[in-house]
C-alpha cells in the first residue's frame, strides 16, 4: 500500500484481499481501473465487475475480496470525507459488514468496521502490520505494472477539492494512528539485531 500511495501524486484505491479464516487480515491489495486526482479517486464500474469475476474464478468468496475498501488521502488527515461516507453507505451499506481503510500520505491511517445487520454497529479499529505471518517477497515491478495499468491520473476539479474536508469526528476521540508503522518496532523489540534489519 505504501508503494502504491507513493508511486504517484494522486490518491489511489483498491480492495483488500483476505484469507477465508481471517477476514480482517489483508494479505493482498488489488487495484481496479480508476480515475484519480490528488484529492479524489473513482473506480471504474466495469473494472469492479471484472474484479469480482476474477476473484470468484480464484475461488474466493465476496467476503474475502469485496468488503475492505482501501484508499489514500493527501496530506496528514486520514479521516473520511463526505464522499467517502457516501460511498461507504451506498456501495457497502447492504453487505453484512464492511471496512473502510484510509491511509494518509504522511502515514496516519483510519479504519472503521461497520456491521449492517441487526441493530448495526460501527467501531474504529487499530491497524498494524503483522510481521509474525509469512509473506512473499516484495514485487515492485509487478506493483508498478498494476499501478500503471489501473491508475489514470487527472487534474483535480475545483468543486471536488472542496469536498475532502473530514466531516466525521472520531467516536473514540483519538488521533488517527500511525501505529502500523511502529508495529515493526514492537514485534522486533526482543530482537537485538532488529536495528540491523531496518533500511
Amino acid at each position: 500500500m505504501l508503494f502504491l500511495r507513493d508511486y504517484g501524486d494522486t490518491e489511489v484505491g483498491g480492495f483488500g484481499i483476505a484469507p477465508s479464516d481471517d477476514l480482517l487480515f489483508v494479505e493482498d491489495i488489488q487495484l481496479v481501473k480508476q480515475v484519480c486526482s490528488w484529492v479524489h479517486v473513482a473506480f471504474d464500474d466495469e473494472s469492479i465487475a471484472d474484479f469480482f469475476d476474477r476473484e470468484v474464478d480464484a475461488n474466493r468468496r465476496p467476503e474475502q475480496f469485496a468488503r475492505i475498501w482501501i484508499h489514500t488521502h493527501p496530506g496528514d488527515c486520514p479521516r473520511p470525507s463526505i464522499t467517502d461516507e457516501e460511498t461507504f453507505q451506498r456501495a457497502f451499506g447492504r453487505a453484512d459488514w464492511a471496512l473502510m481503510f484510509i491511509l494518509a500520505r504522511e502515514g496516519q491511517s483510519y479504519t472503521r468496521l461497520r456491521f449492517n445487520v441487526g441493530p448495526g454497529a460501527e467501531i474504529e479499529l487499530p491497524v498494524c502490520v503483522d510481521y509474525s505471518r509469512s509473506f512473499l517477497a516484495s514485487r515492485p515491478d509487478a506493483w508498478e505494472a498494476e499501478y500503471l495499468t489501473n491508475v489514470h491520473a487527472v487534474q483535480p476539479v475545483p468543486s471536488e477539492s472542496a469536498e475532502w474536508e473530514p466531516v466525521r469526528p472520531s467516536p473514540l476521540e483519538e488521533d488517527p494512528t500511525n501505529s502500523w508503522f511502529e508495529s515493526w518496532f514492537d514485534y522486533a523489540a526482543d530482537d537485538e539485531n532488529a536495528e540491523e534489519l531496518l533500511p
Partner: peptide
C-alpha cells in the same frame, strides 16, 4: 460478463454478477 437489459431472459449456465457502482473517495 456483458452489460444486459433488464428484460433479458436467462439461460442455463448464465453467469450473473451484481456489483456496486460509483465507488469513489476524496
Amino acid at each position: 460478463r456483458q452489460p444486459c437489459p433488464a428484460h433479458q431472459v436467462l439461460r442455463e449456465g448464465d453467469r450473473v454478477s451484481i456489483t456496486p457502482t460509483k465507488i469513489e473517495g476524496a
